[in-house]
């Protein structure tokens, strides 16, 4: 009986030790990236209809991340002030707060959701709250089309701190 117990305990410990690797996972999220070419974010957002429902691979600095569940990350475009959102399924991929500031390559299907006015106001209110800005619902008078990449995977690219600090807007 004692031997059996020892085997049981040792098997459990072996499993737990293997699990130690989970915390030190590579910086690959979900399925990673596999598409052949990277498309410029400005190119996608400049002509969104050409990319809707197509798989795109984009690259940019992560400038914001979902604070609640890590279910989206915003990548900075090559065009100043422009961003694209990579939305992933809740819980399937979780982007950590530490990803902000890193160079990220992400892949997924580019989608367009035309929202009704009520939902447009809610989305704008949420975005204002996330950005810590004041929001007036009456300022939204037109329906918003939400473009985003429904992400299947992402990879954090290596980038030395000194090089990064040189600026990349």
């Amino acid at each position: 009986m004692r031997t059996k117990s020892c085997i049981l305990v040792m098997a459990t410990l072996a499993l737990l030790l293997t699990a130690g690797n989970a915390a030190a996972l590579e910086k690959v999220y979900g399925k990673g990236v596999s598409a052949a070419d990277t498309v410029l974010i400005s190119q996608v957002l400049g002509d969104p209809d050409a990319y809707v429902d197509k798989v795109v691979r984009v690259e940019g600095t992560a400038v914001a991340v979902c604070k609640h569940r890590g279910c989206w990350v915003e990548l900075a475009s090559d065009k100043e002030g422009e961003t694209i959102r990579i939305k992933v399924q809740d819980g399937v991929i979780v982007f950590p707060a530490e990803i902000v500031g890193e160079l990220v390559m992400a892949e997924g299907v580019f989608t367009a959701n035309k929202l009704d006015l009520e939902t447009s106001k809610k989305v704008c209110a949420y975005e204002a709250e996330q950005a810590g800005k004041d929001f007036d619902p009456e300022s939204v008078t037109q329906c918003v089309t939400l473009y985003q990449v429904t992400g299947s995977g992402a990879v954090v690219m290596d980038k030395p701190a000194e090089e990064a600090s040189e600026g990349e807007a």
Partner: peptide, 14 residues
Amino acid sequence: PVKSTWRAAQDKLQ
């Protein structure tokens, strides 16, 4: 150490 910077808007740098 600075990871990176981003010109979020004409008047804003992150």
